[in-house]
Nucleic acid binder design. Structure first.
Lengths: 106, 106
DNA sequence: TTGCTTTGGACTAATTTTGTCCAAAGATAG
DNA sequence: CTATCTTTGGACAAAATTAGTCCAAAGCAA
């Protein structure tokens, strides 16, 4: 699951099963071109589509979601000069902090 | 620098200097309301504005950028169910991988 | 009260993202 | 070589998001 983009991941799942884009797209009820773009990371799948991928390919929805989200944040951070390790480290602390805070607010 | 949102950070910088929003906004040449919203995290500063903050408050541009980016990815990840540690871990590997790849592509 | 600050709603403009359609380029098989 | 299917990506309109401004009301302190 590591080291590739989300697009690479789903493309590999499809190719392992020797299916053309058209067939998978039909199964997921999305446009073939859309699927092609998702595999090329030029369109983002919705949460719903990620769920369909998981069901169709019989893989973990959670793992696919992690693959997708990590892509999103990786690309976001790479747009800027690279402070990525620091950014992720601080971000993780923020998430922890903000979650606790949210709980306390109740 | 830890544990707060970007808005909290710049608000603190301003309050430490006992300046009203208006004055800082003028100095940065942005709308007062805009600055208020940035402090409340309901509008995002551009890279350019982050630079102005850094200059005006005499703090590190890099640190402010990290504060801003970590906010962005923290909020992004928090929108979904929480797999944040895994997401950041994978994302960091992806950044490394994608950077190497980019170099190799040349 | 007066005057300044802060907050946030409303709204438009600008920008970004989505989804679809289509045509061209690539493969593959006959 | 031809016919067929797959893949790729440009173009475009629609939809969604975000940005920036203006303004009014609430808050605060003198």
């Amino acid at each position: 699951m590591l080291e590739e983009t989300f697009g690479d991941t789903v493309k590999k799942l499809r190719e392992d099963r020797k299916l053309p884009l058209r067939e998978v797209a039909e199964a997921l009820k999305i446009d073939t071109s859309m699927l092609g773009k998702i595999e090329k990371n030029s369109r983002k799948p919705t949460k719903h589509i990620i769920g369909k991928f998981a069901t169709f390919f019989e893989v973990s929805d959670k793992d696919l979601t992690i693959a997708f989200l990590s892509d999103a944040v990786a690309f976001r951070v790479m747009e800027e000069e690279d402070f990525s390790s620091e950014v992720f480290k601080v971000a993780e602390e923020k998430v922890k902090y903000l979650k606790t805070k949210k709980l306390l607010d109740k």
